[in-house]
């Protein structure tokens, strides 16, 4: 793997995470529990899609084969996607959506904070811009998890169920592979295992206030960011997202 291949792969991971999560969040449009949440969810999705355009746009530049962010989003199949398994998980109820968001945001915030100091100026600039948005995302999702965890008996039960369901997808975020290690050694990306401590501190505090119990289960599913084995959910998401581009190849929209 050349440095360029590793960088390309890494940028796809960043862009695919925001693309797939942005898509998932956008599925809520018009169906949220309260008007303010409709607005906030649309706003989050919008931020994530904007970040996708920047990450995948840069991936195209690095690859140098003339592929655009749209080409990556609309014309790749499941095995070429490099997003974490966590972000492709279905929305479930509002609690599950916000728990998924909170777990990802807590990771995303630390990741972007590290990337903002990247030796690659292009990455540092995108990360700095995205970090402003993600600072708001993590505040909002953690406040919502706390509010619902510490709300009624029913909301507490639902949030604990969401946490139990999603916890096995946390580990993949911090599991480095050859790509992560190469980028870290080049000073481009932060050290993933080192981010875990900060994540744990943040999440433990959120869970404490939310009166939720961190699952004992240390098992971590993997295969999303390497593209080796995604969940069945991703294919259905792509079916919907890519439909127009696949049905009318070559058309400009």
């Amino acid at each position: 793997m050349t440095d360029r291949d590793a960088l390309f792969e890494y940028l796809l991971r960043l862009g695919d995470n925001t693309l797939v999560l942005g898509h998932r969040v956008s599925e809520w449009c018009g169906h949220a529990p309260v008007l303010e949440e409709d607005i906030a969810l649309a706003n989050t999705a919008l931020d994530l899609i904007g970040q996708t355009q920047m990450w995948l746009g840069l991936a195209g530049d690095v690859e140098g084969e003339g592929r655009s962010a749209d080409d990556f989003a609309m014309l790749r199949d499941v095995w070429d996607f490099r997003n974490l398994l966590l972000v492709e998980q279905p929305n479930g109820d509002f609690g599950q959506t916000m728990m998924r968001q909170c777990l990802f945001d807590a990771f995303h915030f630390d990741l972007l904070s590290g990337l903002a100091g990247s030796t690659d100026d292009r990455i540092a600039a995108i990360a700095a811009k995205a970090l402003k948005e993600v600072t708001y995302h993590v505040d909002r999702s953690s406040e919502t998890v706390i509010g619902l965890g510490d709300g009624t008996e029913e909301s507490h039960r639902r949030m604990q169920a969401a946490l139990d369901l999603l916890w096995p997808y946390v580990g993949e975020m911090f599991m480095p592979d050859a790509v992560d290690t190469a980028l870290h050694e080049a000073g481009i990306a932060p050290d993933l295992p080192a981010l875990r401590a900060s994540f744990d501190t943040r999440i433990d505090e959120i869970l404490r206030q939310a009166t939720l119990v961190r699952p004992d289960n240390a098992y971590a599913h993997s295969g999303g960011k390497t593209g080796v084995r995604h969940s069945e959910h991703l294919g259905h998401l792509l079916t919907q997202m890519q439909w127009l581009q696949r049905a009318y190849p070559g058309a400009a929209w």
Partner: peptide, 16 residues
């Protein structure tokens, strides 16, 4: 459906 499914969310946030 959005309103009914969201009842537990609104109640939870108010309780908190």
């Amino acid at each position: 459906k959005a309103w009914d499914d969201g009842a537990w969310v609104r109640e939870g946030l108010i309780a908190h």
